[in-house]
Amino acid sequence: MLALFYAFISQAHGRSFMPIAGTKVAQKVDSLYSFLLVISVISCVLVIGGLIYFALKYRRKTADDKTAYISHNNTLEFLWSFIPFVLFIVVFAWGWLIYRDMRSFPDDALEIHVLGKKWNWDYQYKSGKRTTAELTVPVGVPVKLIMTSQDVIHSFFIPSFRIKQDVVPGRYTALWFEAEKQGRYQIFCTEYCGDQHSAMLGTLNVVSLEEYETWLGDNPYKGLSLAEVGQKVFSQKCTVCHNVNDQRKVGPGFAGLYQKQRQFADGSQAVADENYIRDSILMPQKQVVEGYPPNGMISFQGQLAENELLGLIEYIKTLK
């Protein structure tokens, strides 16, 4: 029993288990959560305490105890219906207020587009800059994420900001936050989306405004050779499904792929040259290697700049 009681108290400090609140909205959620925790612990102690007390106090003494024939008590019954009702309505209203804040998007928010797809997050800024997995935003500036999915339903979740929103294919959904402190925050996908659902992670990198400006302006591949550009793009976008050795992960391993004979599901064959690699990236369903599911890979059409695509091809050619 003591272990449980301790667990109760630790749950009361549950807030401390939650990641540190990174936005004002998150702090409001935490205060509501504390209020809910306190009510819950009190009502649990009342009900369970009462239960244990009655159970011990009214233990059966003799075989033919006479028990009181109490059928009901209107005032008591009214009280324990009305008080929970009032408490629930208070909690409902409070929750609604905070939900209002979460759903009212500031007009001057910095808009970033999020594309969820099977097992990775892609971000695109108004300036055309694209990144994968890591989302960089300035601190203290309201950011509005306009999100959609390329295949199935995903869900963009930042625990430290207490916000979450499903990313539904075929339409746009939105989420907003204003980070208060710089730092790196964890991003999860919380709507079940298949094999690598648990690998669909991202990090939110909150930096100062100046850092953000310089980061936005510079070219991430400045001074890198084509193969090094390819290696950087590969590590961001492809490692979820492909290995650099020849081990199969979700897709085939790429070690020694270049100039190798490829046997396709429809019986045809081809040598893996530059065009084959390019087509496999932009139109994966066209030639599916034997033993792999038909619509396993999603097309990267329109998501890779020309230098990134050429870099990828060069990099894959170097893999032995």
Binding site: V29, F92, G95, R162, I163
Partner: peptide, 25 residues
Amino acid sequence: LFLFTIGGVTGIMLATLAMDVHFHD
């Protein structure tokens, strides 16, 4: 009774809009 009470109070937490945004899934 013991377990259902805990289940019940956490149910109210999940029914609250702002909390469920964090707790959902």
